[in-house]
């Protein structure tokens, strides 16, 4: 910023311009990890979040397995398979929530 030598009152002009441009969506800013403290960061909040994620993935797994069984007449097979997959998906959800954050983009 050699042009700014004479204008000490405006050293932040470039910064302000950049901020204004990013705010108006002209320059796309590097998107930061969207994990702002949802549900509170207390121990109870985290516990509740993890529990809900595990349970909901399990519900979806059981639901899919049950409907596939009814449809294909393979009574317990699909339920057993999808309960396991649902549990896996629950763990994957929790990992995505709690695991090391990689920069989103």
């Amino acid at each position: 910023m050699t042009e700014n030598k004479g204008h000490d009152s405006l050293p932040s002009f470039e910064d302000r311009l950049r901020a204004a441009r990013t705010k108006q969506g002209m320059d796309t800013p590097p998107t930061q990890a969207a994990s702002a403290g949802m549900g509170g960061n207390s121990a109870m909040g985290i516990g509740l979040r993890v529990g809900v994620e595990l349970v909901s993935a399990m519900i979806v797994g059981v639901g899919i397995g049950w409907f596939l069984d009814r449809w294909l007449h393979t009574s317990p097979l699909m339920l057993i398979l999808f309960v396991l997959l649902g549990g896996g998906a629950g763990v994957a959800n929790v990992w995505r929530l709690m695991g090391p954050k990689k920069p989103l983009g």
């Binding site: 809900v52 994620e53 349970v55 909901s56 993935a57 519900i59 979806v60 797994g61 899919i64 999808f82 997959l85 649902g86 896996g88 998906a89 629950g90 994957a92 959800n93 995505r96």
Partner: peptide, 14 residues
């Protein structure tokens, strides 16, 4: 793939 699909479908449930 099934795990990711279930994980995606579990979003509205959770």
């Amino acid at each position: 793939i099934p795990v990711e699909i279930i994980s995606y479908l579990s979003r509205p449930v959770s």
